[in-house]
Every structure is written in C-alpha cells, then in structure tokens.
C-alpha cells in the first residue's frame, strides 16, 4: 500500500525516520486488552459453538503447519535471489524453452516441501531471470514429486506401488503440459512479480538476504492465512463421511474428489492418506485427488494471487485444474 507522504510527490530530502510511538503503544495496549477480555468472556464459548470451535482449531492448525514450509521456501528464495547468480540458473537448463520445461518439472524432485514452499521459490527463480514457463513447471511439480511425498504415497497404499508411479507420472505430465501451455498462450503482462527493494544492495548481503525473506514472507503470508480460512470453512462444513456416498459413479467420483482436493487444501505429504480413506471411490478418483491437490487448491491459489498477481491466478489456477484432472484420468486409465 503506497504511503501518502510528501516525499512521494516531490523528491526532496526525506524526513527523518520516526517510529509512530503513540500508534504503536496504542496497538500493543489494545492487543493485550483484547486478549485479556477475550480470554475472560470466551472462557467456555466452545461448548456452545462446537462448529465454530472446530473451525478455529482447523484454521490455526493449517496456519501453523504451513508457516514453517513457507519460511523454508522464502529462505530458499532468498538464497536464489541474493546468492545464486542469474547465469548459473540459465546454464543449468536447456536453452530451448520447450525442453527446459520438462527438465525444470523433474527438478522439482529436490524441493522437499509442500506447496507452501514452492510459491516463493518459483517467484525468486523468475526474479532471477528464469523464463516463466520452466519456473511454473517447477512450481507445479515440486510439491507432488518430491521423495517425501512419494514415500508417503507408497505407505498410504501398501501393496499398490502403481498408485505412487501413477502419481509421479501424472503430476510430471500435468506440470509439463502447463509449462508448454504457458509458452504457447501465456502473456508476460499477466504476471506481476513484486520487485525487491533495489537499494537493498547498498547495505550488504546480510541485509539484502533479510529483506528478500521479509518481502516474500509478507507478500505470501497474508494470502496463506486467507487460504487457511477458506480451507477450514470447507473442512468444517463438508462432512467427509457424507462424501463417501458419492463414490459410486465413475465420472461423478473423479469430479467430486478433484473439487474436494481444491477446497480442503491438505498438505501434499498427508493427502495420500486422506485419499486412501475414500475407499468407496475408484483408484482414478483417488489419483485425481492427489494430482490436483498439490497443484491447485484454495491456499495455493490465494498465495499465487499474492505473489504473482490476481490476473495470473485467475487464469492459471482454473487451467491447472482442468489439465491436472485430464492427466490424472488419462494416467489412471492406463496404469490403474
């Protein structure tokens, strides 16, 4: 949010930095007062509002579970932004972008985090001059094909290693397809990468590193909370035991589980166990749940809107959904 400050309109010497001490003190005091009053008044609120209480628990859980991964992604992003020269990245990938897309997708294997980590990393890659198409393929593939997620998938489906293979193949295929689609139809003006503070370099590397982290964290963090709010709402309002009754029909089951994956925004490390518990659904529907979830869900789309702009997220997320479902159905038909 730009500040309405005289220094903005006229490049006069900037006024001395002054912490708005009164405002700060007021905020801190008001915060503590609100907490104390809240604890007093709301001591047994949960007994009367079990759904609201479950919402708060789930919302806090998603936020706490995601923050360390966001921080991991932000740290890696800062390493890329500050320490890795742009020419290294370009040298690491094939020069032809059509080839660079699948290579970048496969490189997602090295990022052992869930989707919260991949957004800031992809943003940093683009900022360092990596073309958008391979960076987006990396963004989509990384949460789905890393070793932790693949092992979790194998554990969740004992005796059915084809589920893990199908997940790996379908996710790489969908990520590559999205990269190629971006090459063919994507427009640079849809992407709005918030630039880092340019004068950061005057203050040395440590300061530039801290600023890069803080910048990415603040741009994605609020949207992460927004996504967690949406996911918690679905989690509390949609009873999963009721969903099980929809598993009978082939087409409906794929659509239901794909939409559920978007709405509940479960970590990619955990989604295989959730998918495995939908025993009434077809294996292809379970695969769709696991391919769609790490690529497009409310938390991820919200963070994409925060990091790459709303115009981008509004086009990219629905396209990813269609491509991911199509890839899951195709691979599920062949392999499962």
């Amino acid at each position: 949010m730009p500040q309405q400050h005289p220094a903005q309109v006229r490049p006069a010497p900037a006024p001395p930095y002054r912490e708005p001490a009164g405002l700060l003190a007021l905020l801190v005091v008001a915060g503590f007062a609100a907490l104390a009053l809240g604890r007093f008044w709301l001591a047994d609120w949960g007994q009367h509002h079990p759904a609201a209480q479950a919402w708060v628990t789930v919302f806090v859980s998603i936020t706490l579970q995601s923050l360390p991964f966001l921080l991991l992604g932000v740290t890696l992003g800062a390493v890329i932004s500050v320490l890795v020269p742009a020419r290294w990245l370009q040298a690491a990938l094939p020069r032809r972008q059509a080839l660079a897309v699948p290579v970048a997708g496969a490189a997602g294997v090295v990022l052992p985090g869930c989707e919260c980590a991949s957004v800031p990393v992809a943003g940093a890659l683009m900022r360092q001059g990596l073309p958008a198409a391979p960076a987006l393929a990396f963004l989509l593939a990384a949460p789905a094909v890393n070793p932790i997620v693949l092992v979790a998938t194998a554990v969740a489906f004992p005796g059915r290693p084809e589920m893990m293979v199908a997940r790996l193949v379908a996710s790489l295929l969908a990520a590559t397809a999205m990269g190629w689609l971006w090459l063919r139809f994507g427009r640079p003006e849809w992407l709005r990468l918030p630039s880092l503070n340019q004068d950061a370099h005057q203050h040395g590397r440590a300061s530039a590193f801290a600023q890069a982290m803080q910048h990415d964290l603040l741009h994605a963090g609020g949207f992460l909370v927004l996504g967690a709010m949406l996911a918690a709402t679905v989690n509390v309002l949609v009873p999963t035991d009721w969903l099980a009754t929809l598993g009978g029909q082939v087409v409906v089951s794929v659509i239901v589980l794909s939409l559920l994956a978007v709405a509940v925004a479960i970590c990619s490390e955990a989604d295989a166990f959730v998918a495995a518990s939908f025993t009434q659904f077809s294996p292809t529907a379970m695969l769709a749940f696991m391919v769609v979830g790490p690529m497009v869900d409310v938390k991820l789309a919200s963070m994409q809107a925060g990091t790459f702009g709303r115009a981008f997220a509004a086009r990219f997320a629905p396209a990813t959904f269609v491509v991911a479902v199509a890839c899951a159905v195709a691979i599920g038909t062949v392999l499962l």
Partner: peptide, 30 residues
C-alpha cells in the same frame, strides 16, 4: 533513518497474519 517511500511496503492482506495470533491468544482452541 528515513521512510521507505512506498516501495517494499507489504500488501494489506499482511494484516491477516494477526488473525492466527488472536485466535491462539484469545480463544486457544482445544
């Protein structure tokens, strides 16, 4: 020693980061 001139200021959604703080502080859900 001077204001950042709008540049680098975080979006308004950043305030949402205080929501989990309030939820944990005031409600401490079980």
């Amino acid at each position: 020693g001077h204001h950042e001139q709008g540049h680098g200021a975080a979006p308004r959604t950043t305030w949402l980061l205080l929501l989990p703080v309030l939820c944990i502080g005031a409600l401490t859900p079980p």
